[in-house]
């Protein structure tokens, strides 16, 4: 619960205003970090699990490329870069905001009412209410794949290459975070729809790992632009590898990554706000 004096100090405009405003969030986050350090065995087990999860996903891609050497103009080395970038960005987003997927349970149990009563934005409370360090293992898998891909692929290193790598990791993370928030916003309507959320979020991750050139036109519109998944990793990887791309999704589009991320933020914000207003309370 927020300390009432914090809220009072903020509204009164004390000198230490910003410091006080963030104090409740910091206190909650610090407690979550401390709690994870206490259960070391469980924590290690979770880390290994998360790492294996990343490897199983890579295994699936490897099996596909075991049957077809080149898909959508990319070979296994090239798809390794797409997979690494998509995985790292997705995993960072999951560490930062992934726990908003606890919302369906809160809505179903009616406990989300308490969040509405606190003097902090609902989304800010949910995001800062938890942070799962075990999910960092997934980030590591993604980054290792990126490094491996940068070594095995012939790459012309320029400033643009470095900027594109940073773009992909930064704005890719923003797009995935928006996916989590959009899915959470939909929960206010679906009630028991955690499966839909999972599929939404994992579906986005799955789409972002694919060589988008294989998609028929309507899919390029949906996963290229409506949900800008191709922008997270596929388009940046084309830029980095110096590959041309395909009609509707040419490689130069990668430079519009910030625009795609801005679109994702706007859409996620709208869905979330509509969801929060739609909620009628758990009764009782």
């Amino acid at each position: 619960m927020a300390d009432p004096s914090t809220f009072a100090a903020t509204t009164a405009g004390e000198p230490a205003k910003t410091d006080n405003r963030w104090r409740p969030y910091r206190a909650v986050l610090a407690s979550r970090l401390r709690s994870q350090r206490s259960y070391r065995t469980s924590f290690r087990f979770d880390m290994v699990g998360a790492m294996l999860a990343g490897l199983v996903q890579l295994g699936e891609i490897w099996v596909v490329f075991h049957n077809a050497k080149v898909l959508g103009g990319l070979d296994f080395n090239a798809i390794l870069l797409v997979f690494g970038l998509a995985n790292a960005a997705w995993a960072i987003a999951e560490v930062a905001v992934g726990h908003v997927d606890s919302l369906p349970a809160l809505i179903r149990a009616g406990t989300v009412d308490v969040y509405y009563l606190r003097p902090q934005p609902l989304l800010a409370q949910l995001i800062t209410g938890d942070i799962q360090l075990r999910r960092l293992a997934r980030v590591a898998v993604g980054l290792i794949c990126v490094v491996a891909a940068l070594i095995v692929n012939p790459i012309q290193w320029t400033v643009a290459t470095v900027v594109m790598l940073a773009f992909s990791l930064l704005f890719g993370t923003v797009i995935f975070a928006c996916l989590f928030v959009t899915a959470a916003g939909l929960q206010f309507f679906l009630i028991n729809g955690s499966e839909a959320t999972n599929a939404f979020v994992y579906g986005g991750s799955y789409a972002s790992q694919q060589p988008a050139a294989i998609w028929p036109g309507p899919m390029k519109i949906i996963f290229g632009f409506l949900f800008p998944m191709a922008f997270c990793a596929y388009l940046p990887a084309l830029q980095i590898l110096g590959l041309p791309g395909s009609p509707l999704l040419p490689a130069w589009l990668a430079w519009l990554l910030p625009v795609a991320a801005a679109w994702a933020v706007l859409a996620a914000g709208a869905v979330w706000r509509i969801g929060v207003r739609h909620y009628q309370g758990g009764g009782g």
Partner: peptide, 9 residues
């Protein structure tokens, strides 16, 4: 609605 969400997914 949850089933519909699952269907779309």
């Amino acid at each position: 609605p949850a089933a519909l969400g699952g269907l779309i997914a």
